[in-house]
Structure formats: structure tokens, C-alpha cells
Simulated scan of single mutants.
Amino acid sequence: MSGTGRTGDGHGRLGNALSSLAVAVGCVLFLGGFAWGAVVYKPYTVPTASMSPTVNAGDRVLAERIDGADVRRGDVVVFTDSVWGNQPMVKRVVGVGGDKVACCDAEGRLTINGEPVEEPYLQAQLPAGGQAAAPAAQQDFTAVVPKGQVFLLGDERSTSLDSRVHLEDPGQGSVPLSAVQARLDAVAWPSQSLIERPESFAGLPGGISAGGPLPLQLGAVVVGVVLILGGAAAGPIAARASRRGRTTGPASAR
């Protein structure tokens, strides 16, 4: 008696099992990636151009929920402070507790504790190798950041209403770390781009923050989709292969 049909059935059962496994793992990755993202990230719409060209007015962004202990220089953060109008605002942290923030040096650069800081995000719209068209701020200023607070500037220095506007307030324009709610990791719409951590702050004490988990979350979602579609397609293929195996067997046993 020939075992061809039985072998085809075995292959078909194995193919169906692998197909179901791929779909199940894909669903876990797909749903898990979305759930992880919903826990870690919160979407915001940026209302003004004060962070241009890094983030433009109307951009939808994804911000990682963090607490004040996670804030580093160079981070673009969402914060709410009563002195600033008690509305969520988006600015870049340039100074942390204990820093002396000043502008500008002879080359128009911001200085932190006397050290000049290159700010490439201010030059993002200029030709490669071009020099900044304007200094890091339009007026000279000096501020000492109290412990537990941060000093914030917009990337569009000519129009941003930031810590410079509040220099006469207690804390010289700084904001408590407790006011920080999230750190921007990506622009989601209308463009799609990650917001890089500026290396120019890396050499200062505390360094810069690590990138968020968004790439891993997106990777899990993409792999999940591939497994779901691949597993769903493999099931019928395995079934057809099993049927062909049965029909090619001998018509009778001898």
C-alpha cells in the first residue's frame, strides 16, 4: 500500500500548524506594539512655529511620557507651568539645575557654564556647511538655573516666547522639573521623522538622553503584520499541497 496520501496529510497538518502559529505570534506582536506605544507615548499637536524647523506649527508629534529625573540638555519637552499660561508648551531644554546659561559669545553661540554649544538644529534650513545667519539669541542674557529646574528655549529664536521672556521672574525664566510631562521623540504627521538628540550637549555633565523605544514598537507592529499576512497566505497553500498529495497517490492498493 502506498503512503503518499498519508504523507501529504502530514505535510498539510504541519503547514496548517505553522500557519496558525505565525498568525498567533503576529497578532501578539501587532497588538503588543500598539499597546506598548499607547502606554509610553502621548500624541500632541504643536500650535506654534516656535520650534521650527525641528517641529512646525500644526505638526502631530509623539511624546514619550517621562518624569523630571529623565530630562537632559537638548531634549525637546512638553511642559505646563502656571507662569507660562498653564497650557502645554513645547521647548528645548538648554540648561539644567546649576547651569549658567548665557548668550552670546564672540561667534554668536550659546554658552553653558562658559562652554560654547553648537546648535545645528538652528541651521537645519541653511545650505550644508553654511554659517548661522543670526546669533543664538537676538539679545544678550545670562541666567543661573536653580536646582531642580530647567531653562528652555525655542529653536526659532527670533519669535519664540521662552525662558528669555521670564528672566525677571523668580528662577530667571526656568521651569520646575515637575512641570515636564513628556519628551518629543518623533513627528508623526504630516511628515514622519525621529527627533534626534543633539550631540553638542553630550560632553556636558549628565550627557544626553537615550533614544525612545518608538523604533522597537514600530518594528514589532511591522513584523506582526508580516507574520499575520504570511501565515494567513500559507494556510491555503498548505491545504492545496495536501490535496495534491492525496490525488497523486495510487488509485488502488495491490
Results as ranks from 00 to 15, higher is better:
residue 38 A to L: 09
residue 73 R to V: 00
residue 95 G to E: 04
residue 49 A to K: 02
residue 115 E to S: 07
residue 80 T to H: 04
residue 81 D to N: 14
residue 15 G to P: 07
residue 118 E to V: 11
residue 103 C to W: 06
residue 46 V to Q: 04
residue 11 H to F: 13
residue 115 E to F: 01
residue 42 K to D: 06
residue 38 A to Y: 03
residue 118 E to F: 06
residue 52 S to A: 15
residue 53 P to H: 07
residue 114 G to S: 11
residue 111 T to N: 08
residue 29 L to C: 14
residue 108 G to W: 06
residue 13 R to V: 15
residue 60 R to P: 08
residue 101 V to Y: 01
residue 109 R to H: 12
residue 27 C to K: 00
residue 11 H to P: 01
residue 56 N to H: 13
residue 39 V to N: 09
residue 81 D to T: 11
residue 16 N to R: 13
residue 41 Y to N: 02
residue 19 S to L: 09
residue 55 V to Q: 00
residue 35 A to H: 10
residue 95 G to R: 08
residue 10 G to N: 10
residue 109 R to I: 13
residue 81 D to E: 15
residue 84 W to H: 14
residue 53 P to R: 10
residue 100 K to I: 14
residue 59 D to F: 07
residue 70 D to C: 09
residue 20 S to A: 13
residue 18 L to Q: 11
residue 10 G to F: 12
residue 115 E to Q: 05
residue 53 P to C: 09
residue 54 T to D: 04
residue 72 R to I: 01
residue 45 T to N: 02
residue 99 D to K: 08
residue 106 A to L: 10
residue 30 F to N: 09
residue 20 S to F: 07
residue 49 A to Y: 01
residue 25 V to H: 06
residue 51 M to Y: 05
residue 45 T to F: 00
residue 35 A to S: 13
residue 26 G to H: 05
residue 75 D to A: 12
residue 102 A to E: 15
residue 108 G to I: 06
residue 81 D to A: 13
residue 29 L to Y: 06
residue 109 R to N: 11
residue 119 E to W: 10
residue 23 V to E: 02
